[in-house]
Design a protein around this nucleic acid. Structure first.
Lengths: 337, 337
DNA sequence: CTGAAAGCGCTTACAG
DNA sequence: CTGAAAGCGCTTACAG
């Protein structure tokens, strides 16, 4: 097949001609900027409505030195359990961008460094960028800072100079663990993912907060981090069973599904002999039995807010340097409270 | 926080001045188009190399009436099992786009109709679009055809006028079912997903092909389609067990995981009493026991090729109207061949 | 309130 | 081989 283009020529000059006004006037009617009589504006507006004329955003951008694009940097190699997060937040971002006549360019990055991001910045194709789910050592953030490109981290960063918006994993985890503690169980195991991700460290802090709040000393041996493979989760579970914990908090739903399998094999009853709770109320656990008590975050809302903040920042509006969104504790059969 | 922009001013005019040549010459040296002496070209090239000058792609695009962007339309509401497909193919698309100095704009669509796609087209922000995993009734394809926007379907469409590139699900399924038939089992159940997706219909055709090839008459009752919920998959599995099939082919890995659960509960041994095979070798089944025999497709390569074809088509190069990529049959413990 | 003109940063006939 | 000029489709001081 061979491509046959069509061009729809109509420009701002055409409508100016048709209406016997200047391009300036048409431009002003559309943008709403600059003095113009109500009558003229209406005349222009109804004409472009009727002819379905849409000004060329690219040309507009060139004149204004804007692109009306933002970049979204997402990991090209995340695992299944994290995909819904990206999917949902992406959705929110695109929606909010659209509402502001912005579009979203995709930059998947594998490994630490992103040449694609650099190329996009060098080519000046975006006005700002959204980084997602940061690593403890985030070279992309460093690069953008260096280049003075407006960006916001959808997630948490240690660097207070970085704009960030995140779900409140810490408070959520604290609330969850607090509920378990209050139900009379003090030996609570935690199985965590890779500490390379800031989010896993943040969740851990919530766990600690909960113990501090009730004044019970926390047993470091019950907190097993860096479980990034099935084998590690299995052995962590076995260790916690031997340590006679009354509950296990899983830092993600993948960890949780493995824990449930191990317990099933050992014929350990959930929740009677062992209570289980998880982070992220994902489809991965949708059909687990018993149904798992879990934290829930509104990823889509996170995307919307992140995009909103970036767009405001780009426009020179003052924004909060760090925003935290809420959480929801969804209580199901895997716990006794 | 308040945004402080930087502008890196340097333009083609600056380098022209610095080198005492015209903008035309600089432009020609960069693009490689138009007559220019080797010496001049080298002089320009080494200067822009040294100063790290990158021409503004947006301005270039405006002058050439191109955007150097393509849109990628993906479902905003796909289920977990399909996410790796989108993740991987997206990766391939971005990679190939990058290699051609193109960028990828994200258009998540929910429901049938996409206002975001229409807006993007109206705003002339892309040179072409990639549609993914088509529905039987694809309004976006119809819209793009109408608008005469170059696009290619990453997947299969009934409409031969639509450029398409897909993994060969049909041949893959045929090979898989053929292997089972050859192993002496004629009663083979099929549990399929929603018939709204072209891909599920294509797979079904492969199943039929296999029976035709060996001349065994196929029993329509063993072919249960439209199983888009756990309940339906469960009841389909039970029905097939009652029908005494020797093998079940699952049309996706979610279906397969449910089938395995049901069989485990019924204490039916896999593969001794029932052979199982699945489509898509996904992480969802990574830890299934027994390990599941499955088809594997190179999603990333699919993305690369799809993007390549779109880009060629945009450039007016003649392309194949339909391309099919291969498959791999990964044989594991859940089958006896 | 309205418009002519210059400009955003490139490309590309056209002429030399 | 090289360059002046017009143009891509907008915006925006500036002047009236």
């Amino acid at each position: 097949m061979v491509c046959r283009m069509k061009d729809s020529k109509i420009t701002i000059a055409d409508v100016a001609d048709a209406l016997h006004v200047s391009k300036t006037t048409v431009s002003r009617a559309i943008s709403g900027k600059g003095r113009i009589s109500d009558e003229t504006r209406q005349r222009v507006l109804s004409y472009i409505e009727a002819t379905d004329f849409k000004p060329n955003v690219i040309a507009k951008g060139l004149a204004q030195k804007k692109t009306y694009n933002i970049a979204l940097v997402i990991p090209g190699d995340c695992n299944l359990v994290d995909m819904p997060f990206f999917q949902n937040s992406m959705q929110g971002i695109c929606e909010e961008a659209s509402a502001n006549d912005y579009d979203v360019m995709l930059v998947p990055v594998t490994g630490r460094h992103s040449e694609n991001l650099e190329r996009m910045i060098a080519n000046k194709k975006v006005d700002g960028v959204i980084l997602s789910r940061s690593l403890v050592k985030d070279t992309n953030a460093a690069f953008l800072k260096e280049e003075k490109i407006p960006f916001v981290m959808m997630g948490t960063s240690r660097d207070a100079k970085i704009l960030q918006v995140d779900n409140n994993h810490r408070a959520g985890c604290c609330a969850l663990v607090g509920r378990i503690l209050n139900s009379g169980i003090a030996r609570i195991g935690l199985i965590g993912g890779s500490k390379n991700y800031v989010v896993n460290r943040t969740r851990k802090q919530g766990y600690e907060d909960a113990f501090l709040a009730v004044g019970i000393e926390q047993n470091a041996a019950l907190c097993i981090e860096n479980c990034d493979s099935v084998e590690k989760v299995v052995s962590a579970t076995e260790k916690l069973v031997r340590a006679d914990v009354g509950a296990i908090v899983c830092m993600d739903d993948f960890v949780c599904s493995v824990v449930l399998q191990v317990l099933a094999e050992k014929k350990i009853q959930v929740p009677q002999q062992m209570q289980i709770a998880s982070f992220y109320d994902s489809t991965l656990l949708k059909h687990a039995k018993p149904a798992v008590t879990s934290l829930w975050f509104d990823d889509r809302a996170l995307g919307v807010l992140t995009c909103k903040i970036l767009l405001q920042y780009i426009q020179g509006i003052k924004v909060e340097s760090k925003t935290l969104l809420g959480y929801e504790l969804v209580i199901r059969e895997s716990t006794l409270f």
